[in-house]
Computed example of a mutant assay.
Amino acid sequence: MAQQIEQISQLIDENRLDEASGLIDEGLQKNSKLAELYFLRGQIQMKKEAWGSAINCFRKALEIDPVFPGAQNRIEMAQSILGFFNPDLLNP
């Protein structure tokens, strides 16, 4: 499984998100309790700017492993992006 996780990470880095998603789905069918796979799915969702879905994936990773490295930081990052407000953009 470690090799598959490394392969998924590489695909994400190369922006081959559909291929990475397919491998994550395969991995979750074999073992739905791997926090790493949910974390990687969250990374894909962030690249797609699907912030809510990304947050849900990172929360699922934390549900499985409460101290999963980086998951809480990614949740905070996505929430920060969702909460960004610049009044100057509304008043040209």
Score class of each variant (00 low, 15 high):
K47L: 14
F85M: 08
Q72T: 07
I75V: 02
R41K: 14
Q79H: 12
D65I: 08
G22P: 01
R74T: 07
L23C: 13
Q10E: 06
I5S: 05
P66S: 10
E63S: 12
D13P: 01
N31T: 09
A2S: 07
N91Y: 01
A78G: 01
N86S: 05
K48A: 15
I44G: 06
F84V: 02
N86Q: 04
L82A: 09
W51H: 03
N73V: 05
S32R: 10
C57H: 13
E6A: 13
Q43V: 04
R59A: 10
A35Q: 01
R16N: 14
L90N: 09
K47T: 09
C57P: 06
K47A: 13
M77S: 05
K33N: 10
A50Y: 09
L89F: 03
P66F: 09
I75G: 00
F58S: 04
S32M: 08
D88A: 10
G42V: 06
K60P: 05
F39D: 01
Y38E: 03
K48C: 13
I44Y: 05
K30Q: 15
S9W: 11
S9V: 11
D65C: 08
D88V: 07
L28C: 14
D13Y: 06
E19L: 15
L28D: 14
N73E: 11
L11C: 02
A20R: 07
Q7N: 07
I24D: 03
I24R: 01
G52N: 09
M77H: 05
Q45C: 12
Q43F: 03
Q72V: 07
D18G: 10
K33D: 10
D65P: 01
Q3T: 12
E49P: 00
D88L: 08
I8A: 13
L40Q: 14
D18H: 11
F68Q: 02
E49R: 01
M46K: 06
S32V: 08
W51N: 01
G27C: 09
G42C: 05
L17E: 04
E49T: 00
D25T: 15
I64W: 04
D88N: 07
E19P: 15
E63D: 11
N91L: 04
V67I: 07
F39C: 02
R16H: 10
I44M: 09
K60Y: 11
I75Y: 00
K60M: 15
Q43R: 11
Q45S: 14
N73C: 02
A35S: 08
I12Q: 11
